[in-house]
């Protein structure tokens, strides 16, 4: 029984989650402040993977990162980076695919905090950055945790995008969801069963933990 696809999936999900936390926190903060046409358009683009068929997203990424044209050709020639059929490409595709799960909960949690919290901090002479780190972030801890878990779980469940951009290269792009499909194709139901059960258990534990964290989340006394 080859467990490489499981490890590869967990590695992909962990890397995606960490990168999305780094990108997602400032981006969600920026989106939570006020409204402008630029923000609406960027938020719509971030949300698109929720409704777009994964194969469509995968197809566009495949075209964009093809080493024979456009950005892909430039990346290949300038930095010798090939994103199609590589683990790096999977990471990038996962970041785009799971981004709404990171941005959405954090942005709405920030918007639910009373505006007077940050205003009070500003009048005390604190910068926007310090206010975000010491006041806003600790008060949306539960939502950040939820967003991180959902991002991780959603990356585990990727199939269409991964298949389009990564293919099915053992040890490189053959993640667990693809291994299930592949095992069924070759009638190896035993392997498919084990991969499926492991994925089911991991995601079930993650969804349970989301419910637990949300139940105990700190509430503002102003609510």
């Amino acid at each position: 029984m080859d467990l490489t696809p499981i490890w590869l999936t967990l590695k992909l999900a962990a890397i995606t989650m960490v990168i999305l936390l780094i990108i997602g926190l400032p981006l969600a903060y920026w989106l939570s402040k006020g409204r402008s046409i630029a923000k609406i358009i960027i938020e719509a683009i971030i949300t698109m993977p929720l409704v777009l068929p994964p194969s469509v997203l995968g197809f566009y990424l495949l075209m964009a990162f093809s080493p024979k044209q456009g950005i892909g050709e430039w990346l290949h020639k300038t930095f010798d980076i090939q994103l199609v059929f590589s683990f790096k490409g999977l990471v990038l595709a996962s970041i785009i695919y799971s981004m709404p799960f990171m941005i959405g909960p954090i942005k709405s949690a920030l918007q639910q905090l009373p505006l007077s919290l940050s205003q009070a901090s500003y009048t005390l002479g604190k910068s926007e950055r310090e206010t975000f780190i010491k006041i806003l972030l600790p008060n949306i801890r539960a939502s950040v945790l939820t967003a991180a878990i959902l991002t991780f779980a959603h990356t585990l469940g990727e199939f269409g995008v991964v298949l389009m951009i990564g293919g099915n290269i053992p040890g490189v792009t053959r993640v667990a969801s693809i291994a299930v499909y592949d095992s069924v194709e070759i009638m190896d139901y035993h392997a498919a069963n084990i991969y499926s059960l492991i994925l089911f258990c991991i995601t079930f534990a993650m969804v349970i933990s989301v419910f637990v964290f949300n139940k105990y989340k700190a509430k503002s006394p102003l609510e």
């Binding site: 007077s116 006041i135 600790p138 700190a218 503002s220 006394p221 102003l222």
Partner: peptide, 10 residues
């Protein structure tokens, strides 16, 4: 001093 106090819950 804010009317709603604006205390930091954390």
């Amino acid at each position: 001093v804010f009317q709603n106090y604006a205390l930091f819950p954390n």
